[in-house]
């Protein structure tokens, strides 16, 4: 993609109004990481096949490597940095920790964002639904077992709290 004049984009990131300048060829992932210093979203493949860069765009999970920075004018974005509520971890973060659902941790931010979206939709999601909905997130360390269990445990906590 060719370079051209930078655009001014105003958006809301993790509840805070944010604006940035970016070239049309810059992905949302690049903007988050390089312009805004939000390096929690990771680049694993840069073509939508691993989910490590998953963020919520207007409440829906997307691969931020496949969104252009200029597209998010007026949008609401939530990243891994916004999942915890002040000093309290979200149940899904807590369950990932307690259930040892991460090893190297590089895929973890993407899994957390996608898992949160899934549990917000259905905290009682079945194992099959969890496995289907999170199949766009690759993990190479865990064999997925403990991730599935952590998501299930977080869902139980969330429905108990609701």
């Amino acid at each position: 993609m060719s370079a051209s004049k930078k655009a001014h984009v105003t958006t809301t990131i993790n509840g805070e109004s944010t604006d940035f300048l970016c070239e049309p060829r810059h992905s949302l992932l690049e903007v988050l990481r390089d312009n805004l210093g939000l390096t929690g979203s990771k680049e694993g493949c840069n073509n939508g096949n691993c989910g490590a860069c998953t963020v919520l765009l207007n409440g829906r999970p997307v691969d931020s490597c496949l969104v252009l920075g200029v597209e998010v004018e007026g949008a609401e974005i939530e990243t891994v940095e916004g999942i915890a509520c002040s000093s309290n971890l979200h149940p899904v973060q807590q369950c990932f920790l307690e259930g040892a659902a991460l090893q190297c941790g590089i895929c973890t931010p993407g899994f957390l964002v996608a898992s949160k979206a899934l549990l917000d939709k259905d905290p009682n999601a079945s194992e099959e639904t969890i496995r289907f909905d999170l199949s766009g997130n690759l993990c190479r360390c865990t064999g997925y077992d403990k991730i599935v269990r952590a998501v299930q445990a977080a869902g139980q906590q969330m429905s108990a709290e609701a």
Partner: peptide
């Protein structure tokens, strides 16, 4: 753990 579930852990590309 907390660093890794909040996006604070610094990997090389970060």
């Amino acid at each position: 753990g907390a660093d890794k579930v909040t996006g604070k852990a610094i990997y090389t590309a970060d």
